[in-house]
C-alpha cells in the first residue's frame, strides 16, 4: 500500500485527485501544503526539491520509501487501487480516456472562463464567449455519455470520475448557474453524486453549486 | 489481443503512438487514413462517426468487437502490452508521469514553435522566443533524467518513450538544429535509439534530424 507525502499549495484541484484516490484506496497520505512542511514558491525552488522534482511543480509526491513522482495523474494513479484504475485493459483505457479528456478538453476552456472571474487574469470578452461554447460542447458529450450511466466507467467510482469531477469543481462553484447547466442534467446529477461521496467530501468539504454566474472581477 | 481500426489523417503524430504500440504488442491494427475508408473533415462529421466518437476528433479507435475509444493516450494504452504499460503500479505511474509530461510540457511549446514553420499558424516572434525557452527547459529535464538511463522507465521501451518521442518528432525534424540540441546529448541519443527501433521505423520511416532550424513559412 503506497504511503508518503504530497507537496502542494492549499486548495489545489490537481492535488485533490490524489487526495481523493487515497481516501478510496486507504493509502496513508500526508499533505504538506503549509509552513513549515512546505511553502509554495520557496520549498519548491530549493535544490533538494528540484533534485527530486526537476520541474519544481506541484503536486509532487514522495513515498516513505523515497519513490518520487510528479504530474498529478501519475500521483493519483499510484495512490489508487485496482477498482479506481480499472480492472481490465479495456476499463483502464476508458479511465485513461476520461483522464485525458479532463486535461485536454475541460481544463483549457474552464480556466479561460473562470480565471478572469477570480481576478487572476485579464478579462477578454471574445475569449470568454469562446470558452463558454467549448464548455457547452464538453457538457453535452458528458451529458450524452451519462444518460445511461451513473459513473463514467463501469458501475462504480474510478479515477475517471475523480479526474473529471476535480477538473470541473471551479466551473460548478463559479460559473455554471442553473440556467446554463439546465440542458445538461445528467452531468449535474453525476457531479453531485461524486462530490457527495464521503471520500470526496472528506477532501473537498461542501461543494456548493453556484446560483449566479460570476462575472469578471476587476 | 486487441484488434481493430484506427481512424486518423496521415502523418498524425498522435496516431503514431497507437501504431507503434501495436507494433510491439502484435495487436492487429488497420489504419483508415484515406478515402474511401476515411476522409478527414468528412467522415468524422457523419452521424455514425459522431455516435461512436462524440468529439469528432482523431485518432479514434474501433475494435473489431465494437469497443470504441477516443483520446490518443487511451488508444495507445489499449493496444499495448504489459511491457509497454509498466509491469508494476510504480512503473505504470512512472509511464503515466512521462505521458502526462509529453502532453502538458512538450506539446504546447512545440506547437507554438513548429506550427508557424509549417504554415499552420501565424508567426508571433514573442511566442516563438518563449516557446524556445520552454523547450530548452524540457530538454534539460529529459537530459538530466537520461544521463543514467537508456529509456525513460525501466530497462526497455515503454509507452513513456513512445509518447515522449512522438511528441518530439516535429521538434527534431523541423527546428532542433545541431547547435540548439548540442547541450542535450542524452536526449538526442535517446531519441535516435527510439526511432531506430524496428517497431518505430516501420511506422515512422526514416526520421532525419534537421540541419537548419526552419523559419516561419509565410
Amino acid at each position: 500500500m503506497a504511503a508518503g507525502t504530497l507537496y502542494t499549495y492549499p486548495e489545489n484541484w490537481r492535488a485533490f485527485k490524489a487526495q481523493i484516490a487515497a481516501q478510496y484506496s486507504g493509502a496513508r497520505l500526508k499533505v504538506a501544503s503549509s509552513a513549515p512542511a512546505f511553502t509554495f514558491g520557496q520549498t519548491n525552488r530549493t535544490p533538494a526539491f528540484l533534485n527530486n522534482f526537476p520541474l519544481g511543480k506541484v503536486p509532487a509526491f514522495q513515498g516513505d520509501d523515497g519513490f518520487c513522482l510528479f504530474e498529478s495523474n501519475a500521483i493519483a494513479h499510484y495512490l489508487s487501487n485496482e477498482a479506481l484504475r480499472g480492472s481490465s485493459p479495456q476499463a483502464q483505457s476508458q479511465v485513461l480516456q476520461w483522464v485525458s479528456f479532463a486535461d485536454a478538453e475541460i481544463i483549457p476552456p474552464a480556466s479561460a472562463w473562470v480565471f478572469p472571474t477570480l481576478g487572476i487574469m485579464q478579462f477578454n470578452k471574445q475569449a470568454t464567449e469562446q470558452a463558454k461554447e467549448e464548455v457547452k460542447k464538453v457538457l453535452s458529450v458528458l451529458n450524452h455519455h451519462l444518460n445511461t450511466r451513473t459513473f463514467l466507467v463501469g458501475e462504480r467510482v474510478s479515477l475517471a470520475d475523480i479526474s473529471v469531477a476535480c477538473s470541473m469543481i471551479w466551473l460548478y462553484k463559479q460559473v455554471l448557474e442553473p440556467s446554463f447547466r439546465q440542458p445538461f442534467p445528467n452531468v449535474t446529477r453525476w457531479f453531485q453524486t461524486c462530490v457527495n461521496q464521503p471520500q470526496f467530501k472528506t477532501v473537498l468539504g461542501e461543494v456548493k453549486l453556484c446560483d449566479k454566474m460570476a462575472q469578471f472581477d476587476p | 489481443m486487441a484488434a481493430g481500426t484506427l481512424y486518423t489523417y496521415p502523418e498524425n503524430w498522435r496516431a503514431f503512438k497507437a501504431q507503434i504500440a501495436a507494433q510491439y504488442s502484435g495487436a492487429r491494427l488497420k489504419v483508415a487514413s484515406s478515402a474511401p475508408a476515411f476522409t478527414f473533415g468528412q467522415t468524422n462529421r457523419t452521424p455514425a462517426f459522431l455516435n461512436n466518437f462524440p468529439l469528432g476528433k482523431v485518432p479514434a479507435f474501433q475494435g473489431d468487437d465494437g469497443f470504441c475509444l477516443f483520446e490518443s493516450n487511451a488508444i495507445a494504452h489499449y493496444l499495448s502490452n504489459e511491457a509497454l504499460r509498466g509491469s508494476s503500479p510504480q512503473a505504470q505511474s512512472q509511464v503515466l508521469q512521462w505521458v502526462s509530461f509529453a502532453d502538458a510540457e512538450i506539446i504546447p511549446p512545440a506547437s507554438a514553435w513548429v506550427f508557424p514553420t509549417l504554415g499552420i499558424m501565424q508567426f508571433n516572434k514573442q511566442a516563438t522566443e518563449q516557446a524556445k525557452e520552454e523547450v530548452k527547459k524540457v530538454l534539460s529535464v529529459l537530459n538530466h533524467h537520461l544521463n543514467t538511463r537508456t529509456f525513460l522507465v525501466g530497462e526497455r521501451v515503454s509507452l513513456a518513450d513512445i509518447s515522449v518521442a512522438c511528441s518530439m518528432i516535429w521538434l527534431y525534424k523541423q527546428v532542433l538544429e545541431p547547435s540548439f540540441r548540442q547541450p542535450f546529448p542524452n536526449v538526442t541519443r535517446w531519441f535516435q535509439t527510439c526511432v531506430n527501433q524496428p517497431q518505430f521505423k516501420t511506422v515512422l520511416g526514416e526520421v532525419k534530424l534537421c540541419d537548419k532550424m526552419a523559419q516561419f513559412d509565410p
Binding site: 509554495f40 483549457p108 481576478g119 | 478527414f40 473533415g41 509549417l118
Partner: peptide, 29 residues
C-alpha cells in the same frame, strides 16, 4: 488558492491550436 492559480501554467490557447491544426490537415486531405 486563487493567488496560487496565477502560477498554474494552463494552455489557454489549446482550442485555437486544435482548430488551426484541424484546418491545416483538412486542407491537405
Amino acid at each position: 488558492a486563487v493567488d496560487y492559480f496565477v502560477q498554474e501554467k494552463i494552455w489557454f490557447d489549446k482550442p485555437r491550436y486544435d482548430d488551426a491544426e484541424r484546418h491545416f490537415y483538412e486542407r491537405i486531405n
